[in-house]
């Protein structure tokens, strides 16, 4: 059964050369016929199917559309064309602690963020100890979040987001936060979720991690699917790209520097 179905999705952004944020500017530009948008496709005709219980990785260079795809799947963006279907509940971990209020304490934020993710206060109360235990921040519960380090904020965020048993977990670069001890703990927690039948979609720049954890991998390049398949195969191809780039660089370095003369 496919948990996530992405069918021929394209996402177009209007990159206004200058954003018109006031009426005057807008009308002036409209009158002068300067209301031009540069169309930019972050995704073009992307299709993706993720089966139940699969650990799917998304790789690609910066700006290849990975995060845009995740945001479309989690409902933040509406695609310009194509359709997305997700079966079951989603826990989006696009950014850990999105929606934290830095003036509130960790305790208050756990409740606020939990409800952002659609949990009931009763459920959060039941799981409160588990969340705190996992984040290892019991001593700092009543400290406003603005006094936390970014790693501590991420710990709390991860603990809340994974306390439920979501059907689909969407994770954007989140495993790169925290110290290595916590990273291991996060990986462990994700495996636990997986064994409970959760489907995971992971974006990471750490190819080693992707290869280690994922079953299948999709490689995006400039908004299109370059390759999709088994983790080993795709990761090897992606690494080859790295070597190509490296050898190209070496070749460039070997060439004698051209000195411009006027």
């Amino acid at each position: 059964m496919n948990m996530i179905e992405v069918n021929n999705v394209s996402m177009r952004f209007n990159m206004a050369k200058e954003k018109h944020e006031s009426l005057k500017e807008y009308f002036l530009a409209a009158v002068q016929g300067k209301l031009q948008f540069e169309e930019f496709y972050a995704l073009r005709d992307v299709s993706l199917k993720v089966e139940k219980g699969e650990f799917h990785g998304l790789i690609g260079l910066n700006g290849s559309g990975k995060s845009t795809l995740l945001k479309i799947i989690s409902g933040v963006f509406k695609p310009t064309a194509g359709s997305v279907t997700v079966h079951g509940s989603i826990a989006p971990l696009i950014e850990l602690g999105a929606g934290f209020d830095m003036d509130l304490t960790a305790r208050e934020n756990i409740f606020l963020n939990g409800t952002v993710l659609g949990l009931t206060p009763q459920y959060i109360r039941e799981k409160f100890d588990e969340i705190v235990e996992f984040s290892e921040l019991r001593d700092f519960l009543d400290v406003p979040l603005k006094n936390y380090s970014s790693g501590m904020v991420a710990r709390i965020g991860f603990s809340i987001a994974t306390v439920t048993k979501p059907d689909v977990l969407i994770a954007d670069e989140i495993l790169s936060v925290g110290d290595f001890m916590f990273q291991e703990k996060c990986e462990e927690r994700m495996r636990q979720l997986m064994s409970g039948g959760t489907t995971v979609l992971l974006v990471s720049h750490s190819i080693g991690q992707v290869e280690r954890m994922c079953d299948r991998v999709t490689w995006l390049e400039k908004g299109r699917v370059r390759m999709s398949g088994g983790a080993r195969e795709v990761c090897d191809a992606y690494r080859a790209l790295d070597e190509q780039a490296a050898s190209a660089q070496r070749a460039a370095a070997k060439k004698p520097m051209e000195v411009k003369k006027d």
Binding site: D101, D103, L104, E108, F111, L112, T115, V116, G118, L119, T120, P121
Partner: peptide, 20 residues
């Protein structure tokens, strides 16, 4: 109905922050 607790929590937050 689904997001009533979020609404509750957001109001609670504003209230706390206003008088903190």
């Amino acid at each position: 109905w689904r997001y009533r607790y979020l609404l509750q929590n957001l109001i609670g937050r504003d209230f706390k922050l206003k008088y903190r």
